[in-house]
Amino acid sequence: MTSSFPALDIRAPHGAGPQAVLLDMDGTLVDTEGFWWDAEVEVFGALGHVLGEEHRDIVVGGPMTRSAGYLIEVTGADITLDAVRDLLNAAFLRRLERGVPLMPGARDLLTELAARSVPAALVSASHRTVIDRMLRSLGAHHFAATVAGDELERTKPHPDPYLAAAARLGADPARCVAVEDTPTGVASAEAAGCRVIAVPSVAPIGPAPGRTVVGSLEEIDMALLRTVATAPVPRRVTGPAGAPAVP
Rank of each mutant, 00 (worst) to 15 (best):
residue 37 W to M: 01
residue 167 A to V: 01
residue 56 R to F: 13
residue 78 D to V: 12
residue 224 L to N: 06
residue 149 G to N: 08
residue 169 L to S: 04
residue 168 R to E: 03
residue 85 R to M: 14
residue 165 A to W: 01
residue 245 A to S: 13
residue 96 L to H: 10
residue 144 A to Y: 03
residue 240 P to S: 14
residue 175 R to I: 00
residue 71 L to R: 04
residue 110 L to I: 12
residue 242 G to I: 05
residue 167 A to Q: 07
residue 227 T to Q: 15
residue 243 A to S: 14
residue 95 R to F: 13
residue 191 A to L: 08
residue 184 T to I: 14
residue 239 G to T: 08
residue 215 G to W: 07
residue 226 R to Y: 15
residue 6 P to Q: 09
residue 192 A to K: 05
residue 57 D to L: 12
residue 80 T to L: 11
residue 98 R to D: 13
residue 62 G to V: 11
residue 117 S to E: 13
residue 160 D to Y: 06
residue 80 T to V: 09
residue 7 A to E: 13
residue 134 M to D: 13
residue 72 I to Q: 03
residue 145 A to D: 06
residue 209 P to R: 07
residue 168 R to A: 04
residue 93 L to W: 06
residue 229 A to I: 07
residue 120 A to Q: 02
residue 241 A to N: 15
residue 86 D to L: 14
residue 179 V to N: 07
residue 58 I to E: 12
residue 101 P to Y: 08
residue 22 L to R: 00
residue 233 V to D: 12
residue 64 M to P: 01
residue 191 A to F: 10
residue 5 F to R: 12
residue 159 P to C: 01
residue 29 L to I: 03
residue 124 S to F: 13
residue 58 I to A: 09
residue 226 R to I: 15
residue 148 A to N: 07
residue 59 V to N: 03
residue 112 E to V: 05
residue 34 G to E: 09
residue 51 L to E: 04
residue 226 R to K: 14
residue 22 L to Q: 01
residue 135 L to N: 09
residue 69 G to Q: 02
residue 178 A to D: 02
residue 227 T to N: 11
residue 171 A to K: 00
residue 98 R to T: 08
residue 18 P to H: 01
residue 138 L to S: 02
residue 21 V to F: 03
residue 132 D to F: 00
residue 242 G to R: 09
residue 80 T to F: 10
residue 151 E to F: 11
residue 132 D to Q: 13
residue 184 T to V: 14
residue 138 L to V: 07
residue 201 S to G: 09
residue 177 V to M: 06
residue 111 T to M: 09
residue 106 A to V: 08
residue 241 A to F: 15
residue 64 M to G: 04
residue 51 L to M: 09
residue 111 T to Q: 12
residue 199 V to C: 02
residue 19 Q to S: 07
residue 74 V to F: 10
residue 215 G to I: 07
residue 152 L to H: 08
residue 181 D to F: 02
residue 109 L to E: 05
residue 175 R to V: 02
residue 95 R to M: 14
residue 111 T to W: 05
residue 19 Q to L: 02
residue 227 T to F: 11
residue 79 I to A: 15
residue 21 V to K: 00
residue 206 G to P: 04
residue 89 N to K: 13
residue 14 H to C: 02
residue 203 A to S: 15
residue 125 A to G: 12
residue 63 P to F: 01
residue 211 R to M: 03
residue 90 A to K: 14
residue 211 R to G: 01
residue 244 P to Y: 14
residue 246 V to M: 10
residue 124 S to K: 11
residue 101 P to T: 08
